[in-house]
Design a protein around this nucleic acid. Structure first.
Length: 540
RNA sequence: GGGCCCGUAGCUCAGCAAGGAUAGAGCACCGGGCUUUUAACCCGGGGGUCGUGGGUUCAAUUCCCGCCGGGCCCGCCA
């Protein structure tokens, strides 16, 4: 039984992506619960303790895409970015100053910014992520954990959780086997004496005074014992003098306080989410948001990404070689499936985005309706529903790279543009977008394909040939004449032209091939070429 | 110990969510075109028991279960 195209069309949900499907499920669930649909909040929790990487970025884009899908279906949404800036520093991230070690155990919002450009360590870290999100066009409302606690946003939830601490402890034990919270309260006060947060153990709740009694005992962090200072004190939770334990109710508290209806999470925190779902339901009386679990990105390693900053694959690194939309494509096209990625994959995503654009603008025909809808939808989500009005010029990334590689240093863009015109990709002068693409390719070549000048062994015959080419170059400026001179010189010296070209390319480009040599020598500047050729003779 | 993911062309992978007709791409390989070298680019070609065994179905690469192989996460904290 075959479906007619029309019937097929009616079956497409939203824009045909699974984000649209998730949105439908959220609505279905909320209707069933009878909750208000006036404003649907979606949350993304972001860490502020390390350098934001591709995973942090995708955590946000994936949640954001769902909020857009809801909006596309006519609902009002608000996308919340919750910065976990009260988390303690557990280790010094690779590439950061060792001096930070003395702050291990401190809430990251209380640690000074080692680079002194932001108010504190957490603000510095989160600003790196926000910068990338802004460039990508994500619209969000930022809530810092420190503000939320200080303003008392979670007061009611904290009180409920502390009043029912034994129930919470029981849930944690049932779901994870961990018995810690059967004894300790699920709240970490900041030690008033030493300033650390993970070293304290909360042991008594005084509901009438909004206070929690604690001792600064110390705790095991990453297999190392972090010593406490022994101080005994009291923390007022309504003033933000501490925070809830992540695993034992903090998520749940946020969900209820903010009315969160959806939150996707990485599989690394699956246990915490499961615990929090139960706490939300059983202790706070709030049906938890719908979830989707996504897989992690793994670092393939490989290329040197950044010598100084550790080997973190950050959005900033991506933006050196590819557009924000190409990275969004990476994060949105699939949810499941652990993927190993590295910078080497960027060209593929750039090309794939171009292909999606072709489908979107009808330049590439896809017969099957559903397939077309899906790809078009994905493209729109890559632009967060604000796709360009006109298609851009699509040049395969590796073509740009090979053109840039051989382009003379001082006139890269003109050289590449001229070749592209010749190849039929370009009419007239390059657009801003194309220039940007050339820039990506330039960064790529500069960072990964910089060829050291190659020393090659030259025979006497070959040296003579190069010397006579130098003579010609000093006199002749016509590219075509130079081109034929190369053949003549090769033959005159008993060298096969093919071999001579190879030698010249090795000397000039470090490769055995290259662009048409006559024009190229002129493009790179004859004086420059002469200098390099002379040096090659001196080498041997 | 608990949980998740992957297995599709020589290689890297897409497709699988809402099952549908000869299963796709890039690289590699082979042939041709273009450039007075090469590369690039363009056209064409070969190459697949979709890991495996069952089940559901008119129909399974797609859904369900078992098995084999590879990997990841959690089991402190976040």
């Amino acid at each position: 039984m075959l479906e007619s195209p029309m019937e097929d069309a009616e079956r497409i949900i939203g824009h045909g992506t699974w984000y649209d499907k998730v949105a439908v499920e959220i609505i279905k669930k909320e209707r069933k619960l009878g909750r208000s649909l006036d404003l649907l909040r979606i949350e993304s929790g972001v860490a502020a303790s390390g350098i934001p990487h591709i995973g942090s970025f995708s955590e946000v884009t994936r949640n954001y895409a769902v909020s857009l899908a809801l909006r596309e279906q006519g609902y009002k949404t608000e996308f919340i970015l919750f910065s976990d800036n009260k988390d303690g520093l557990r280790s010094v991230p690779a590439g950061m100053p060792k001096s930070l070690e003395k702050f291990i155990g401190f809430p990251v919002t209380d640690i000074p910014d080692p680079y002194r450009c932001h108010e504190n360590y957490a603000d510095h870290m989160i600003s790196l992520l926000l910068e990338a999100l802004d460039e990508a066009g994500v619209e969000y409302k930022l809530i810092k954990g420190s503000d939320a606690y200080a303003r008392g946003l979670l007061n009611e939830e904290i009180r409920l959780i502390l009043e029912n601490a034994s129930r919470v402890g029981q849930i944690v034990k049932e779901e994870t086997g961990q018995e810690k919270y059967l004894e300790a309260l699920p709240y970490f006060p900041v030690c008033e004496s030493c300033g650390r947060i993970y070293t304290t153990k909360a042991y008594k709740f005084l509901p009438d005074e909004n206070k929690i009694l604690y001792r600064c005992e110390g705790m095991e962090i990453k297999h190392k014992w972090l010593k406490g200072c022994g101080y005994e004190g009291e923390a007022n939770y309504t003033k933000g003098e501490g925070k809830l334990a992540w695993k034992a109710g903090e998520f749940a508290a946020r969900w209820r306080a903010l009315g969160i209806r959806f939150e996707a999470y990485g599989k690394d925190i699956a246990d915490s989410v499961r615990v929090n779902d139960r706490i939300s339901r059983e202790v706070l009386g709030y049906e938890p948001p719908m979830h989707v679990q996504y897989e992690m990105f793994l670092d393939k390693g490989g290329r040197k990404i950044s010598k100084s900053k550790g080997n973190v694959f950050t959005p900033q690194v991506w933006f050196r070689y590819g557009s924000p939309q190409s990275m969004i494509l990476l994060t949105l096209k699939r949810f499941i499936g652990t993927r190993s990625i590295s910078v080497e994959d960027i060209p593929r995503y750039m090309d794939e985005l171009d292909e999606l654009e072709d489908v979107y603008f009808g330049e590439k025909k896809i017969k099957e309706f559903k397939e077309r809808a899906k790809l078009t939808g994905l493209y729109k989500y890559c632009w967060f529903m604000k796709p360009p009005k006109k298609p851009s010029i699509h040049v395969p990334y590796n073509l740009l790279v090979s053109l840039v590689r051989v382009a003379p240093e001082n006139k890269k863009i003109q050289f590449v543009a001229e070749k592209l015109r010749k190849y039929g990709y370009l009419k007239g002068s390059p657009s801003e977008d194309l220039k940007k693409r050339i820039e990506y390719a330039m960064n790529w070549v500069r960072d990964f394909e910089e060829t050291a000048e190659v020393k090659i062994e030259l025979s006497e015959k070959e040296k003579r040939a190069i010397l006579s080419l130098i003579d010609r170059l000093q006199l002749i400026g016509d590219p075509e004449v130079i081109q034929s001179s190369i053949f003549e010189i090769a033959r005159a010296n008993g060298i096969k032209p093919r071999r001579f070209f190879e030698i010249l390319y090795m000397i000039l480009l470090g490769t055995r091939f290259g662009p048409r040599l006559g024009p190229y020598l002129v493009d790179m500047g004859r004086a420059n070429a002469i200098k390099i050729l002379k040096r090659s003779i001196d080498f041997t």
